[in-house]
Design a protein around this nucleic acid. Sequence first.
DNA 1: CAAATATATGAACATTTATTCATAGGTATA
DNA 2: TATACCTATGAATAAATGTTCATATATTTG
Lengths: 159, 159
Amino acid sequence: MILISMFILKTSLLEALIYLAISSKSAVNKQELRSTQTDDAQTCETHCLIDLGDFVEIAPKLLSMVKAQQMAELFGVLADPNRLRLLSALAASQELCVCDLAAALKMSESAVSHQLRLLRTMRLVSYRKAGRNVYYGLADSHIVNLYRSVAEHLDEVEV
Amino acid sequence: MILISMFILKTSLLEALIYLAISSKSAVNKQELRSTQTDDAQTCETHCLIDLGDFVEIAPKLLSMVKAQQMAELFGVLADPNRLRLLSALAASQELCVCDLAAALKMSESAVSHQLRLLRTMRLVSYRKAGRNVYYGLADSHIVNLYRSVAEHLDEVEV
DNA sequence: CAAATATATGAACATTTATTCATAGGTATA
DNA sequence: TATACCTATGAATAAATGTTCATATATTTG
């Protein structure tokens, strides 16, 4: 079971999803992790753990605040229907301009632009300016692959 | 490339993430997908697509509103740091009660209870009542597996 | 039975998020 | 150069989200 998921991760595109999560601004992580580890404040009198020693063991396995925040942000990008649809459009075509994306998704051009800015900030989309048009595409990023995997499978199952 | 991701999906836990996304309330999908296909409203005069025919081709590949919404909700569960930390705590131990979770994560018991309710609604956690305590654990869900994949890899990389 | 404990929940509040609206910047075309 | 077009962006508005606070329910213990 563990072996399987390890293997999957090695080959999978999910891999760098995680990479992204920790590579960006993880300078504070270590320090923060430690504090979470040692501090076992308790609000209730009687602990429910079968073995109280477990409490100490669990602490170091907890996601640190910083990591949790980063993972949450990552998943958060994919937690909006319109962003997913934007990605689906970009996955369907090589490049698309704001105007076409807006038309295809029936969103306002402003809304599209705003969301693209977010995706651009997260480095999920590529940006190419040509004349007065700006062409967006999927960046060579792993979240994109995650999305693709999910979307492909979605199609597969639906058929 | 496609082959690879197909294989991954077959074995992967991501698989049913998607399953979940479409299996629940996808009755409206077909109808909705069609409308998205045929309707190519255009807000801009000059399309940026190299080939205008692409526009028609892209439409059917777009995520439908319903699907996008379902996928977004799915990812949304994992888009909160405290929920991720709750999951990490439950992953570290077999079962934990509300009170211990609150203590371990330094959250109020109320906040924990609220979040657990959400996780319970999404069937991500198991619920076992014993006396006046309630023990929560990770359910055998695919979203949980997605989380696990990500979290495991996170550990791996950090070391 | 009364008091204490563990959990759940509704309401209020604060924060975040996504859209729209108005406007500005930059580019092509007349 | 003036005008039209595409995109970007700040501000405002609306909606969703998460926490706290107060309270309710249920169970155990004195």
